[in-house]
Design a protein around this nucleic acid. Structure first.
Lengths: 135, 135
DNA sequence: TATATTAGACTACACGCGTAATCCAAAAAT
DNA sequence: ATTTTTGGATTACGCGTGTAGTCTAATATA
């Protein structure tokens, strides 16, 4: 897998805007963040510049202005970040986190059912793998 | 809940040492990190100082040297960090993360069984709550 | 055409962090 | 007693980040 540029917390907000819709002009991004982030327009433009430098986004020229769009997918991002987060806090072991969350979180019956269904699928795969490799 | 001091990644390594055993002298901490982190002793001492300033740890004097111990619990920490991580990446929604991990991770049959058991418990609680509040 | 506006480029600046080195007083060693 | 070692305090320094402000060239406006 390729190296994803490191995106800071503030930059992340900009990325979210561009992930939900793109391409957008700087002003559109600024507007989208308004009232939500309480940032001066210049601040947003700085963040955009930094994301450009990091190759997290790019632009096409549209007359006198630029249309920005993401170069990395949110999924890739969430994936990698989650991985490193887990490593840091849970020593890479996913189960403790899962246990923690299954226990602590408010989950609706529907959600619980869905999670169980997923686990059932995993059980089958697991047995499959066990047969092939572990025994 | 009280405010937990912000602990950086490097500082976290020091905290882990003190969480597994405390109190410890600076040298003990340095030794415990040796070979694992490739930090100069002075670096570790800097981290210790910063943790003191942040009130993440404290010490008792023992003759000419100090014995350091944590002031915050690892559990509290993991909890808060996880919370803010989730908020940042998953918009606070836990289910997508759970789905993601249940799907992607290698889990043993035993682990899967345990997770299912937990979900079963939740189902009961959920029905309970439903009876009391939702209907 | 002269002027005001504006998008993007460049500059600013303090604070946290990673990564130490230097300084100093007290203890250990000679 | 003098010298060496050492734990802790203080200082260093470059990079990333949050949070903008200034500069400039082009465009919109009067």
């Amino acid at each position: 897998m390729k190296e994803l540029p490191k995106i800071s917390e503030a930059e992340w907000e900009v990325m979210k805007i561009l992930w939900t819709r793109s391409p957008q002009t700087g002003n559109e991004v600024i507007e989208a963040l308004e009232g939500q982030m309480d940032w001066k327009p210049k601040t947003v433009r700085t963040l955009i510049s930094r994301l450009l430098q990091k190759n997290a986004i790019a632009f096409q020229e549209a007359g006198r202005t630029y249309l920005y769009y993401p170069l990395v997918s949110q999924d890739d991002y969430v994936q990698t970040e989650t991985q490193s987060f887990l490593k840091r806090l849970y020593g890479g072991a996913v189960k403790p986190l899962l246990v923690h969350f299954l226990r602590e979180q408010q989950l609706s019956s529907d959600e619980i059912s869905e999670l169980k269904r997923i686990l059932d699928e995993k059980t089958e795969e697991g047995q499959d793998r066990d047969r092939r490799k572990d025994r």
